[in-house]
Structure formats: C-alpha cells, structure tokens
Amino acid sequence: MPPLNYFVVESPDEVGREAYERIAADVLQDLDLIKVIDRLHIYVDPKVPIFVAAGQLRHMPRAIRISDFANVNSGDAKIVLDIGDETYLAPLLEKLWARYGKENVDQPDRFTVVLPAGVAAEEDLEHMVVADPSETLYKDVIYALQYIAPEGFKVRRQYIRDEKFYYVASEDTLPGDIVETMVAPIFEKMGVTL
C-alpha cells in the first residue's frame, strides 16, 4: 500500500491495534480509496467501547461534464455527440432523455448519440453536468469506515464535509459531546482543525 501522508491506528490492545492497521489497509486498498484519503487516524478501545476514525481527503474530484468525455458537433440538421469514453454514457443518456425526450435522443451505435438540431446550443451541451463522482466518493468513504469498524458497533455518528471526515461508533449510546471530547483531539494530533 503506498503510504498515506498520515496513517495511525491507536488502541490499548496491542494485538488488536496491529490487526486493525492491517484491516484498514486492506479495506482502503480493496475499495480503491488510498489515492483519495490523505490522512487517517483510527482510535479503537473495546473496553469503552468506542471506535473513532478521523481524517482528511485529498482534493475532491470535480463534476463530469459532457465535454470531458465527448465531442459535440452541431450540424444543420442534427447535433452529433461523439463519445470518447463510455464510463458516463448511461448517466448521459438518462439526462438527455429527461431533458429532450426519448424520441429526440437517437443512439445509432455505441459511440454516437444524435439529437435534432436546435434543441440545445452547443455550449449548453458541452457544459452539461452528467455525474458528480464526489457524491459517490462520500458514500464510499463512509462505507469503508463502516466496514473497518467492529461489526457490533452499531450506534454511529458520521460526518464528511470540506474534505474532512469522521466516523464514531460504539455498541452503547454515544454521549452528546463525543465530537468535542474524542474527535477534536484526534484532529489536533493530525494537525488539522475540524
């Protein structure tokens, strides 16, 4: 695993600490999140019981627009979208159908989508947002932390905003001031302010 800029697992149980270090590394690798997460600090104490993971993401991916993966060629009778990368084809079609109606969106082959001329300006089309990977990225990060945390820790509080995230979980009810008492000090250790 290529190192994160900061990766620490803390636990009073040394065997458990080593195991969780390995678990976190495996999960982040499996979910392909190593490149996304910049800093991660995990604290787990089964006696309390508490699991805290806090960290920072690297830059967030920007929204994907049509111009990122297709050429828009407008002719006299029709506008032809020449698809370069199929990854976002499905959400693109959904968006086009919703906006212009299925009868106006023709797809003669895998890499071509045809619209009648005049339904949209070329620039509008090029700037149309098709997908926002950061939305799924948030879900992926929270899912990864849920996956790393011990399974019995069902009570949880999660937060992800402005490239900072935390995930606190326990078997028992979490105290209301858990963020101030447990999470903020961990962010401090990382040199990040929440």
């Binding site: 149980d13 065997v15 458990g16 195991a19 089964p46 011990p150 019995g152």
Partner: peptide, 10 residues
C-alpha cells in the same frame, strides 16, 4: 470451529 475476532476483551 469458532472464528472470533481481534480483541481479547471482546
């Protein structure tokens, strides 16, 4: 065979 977890306490 009981496949248990990581923590002694648990």
């Amino acid at each position: 065979v009981y496949a248990l977890g990581n923590f002694e306490e648990c």
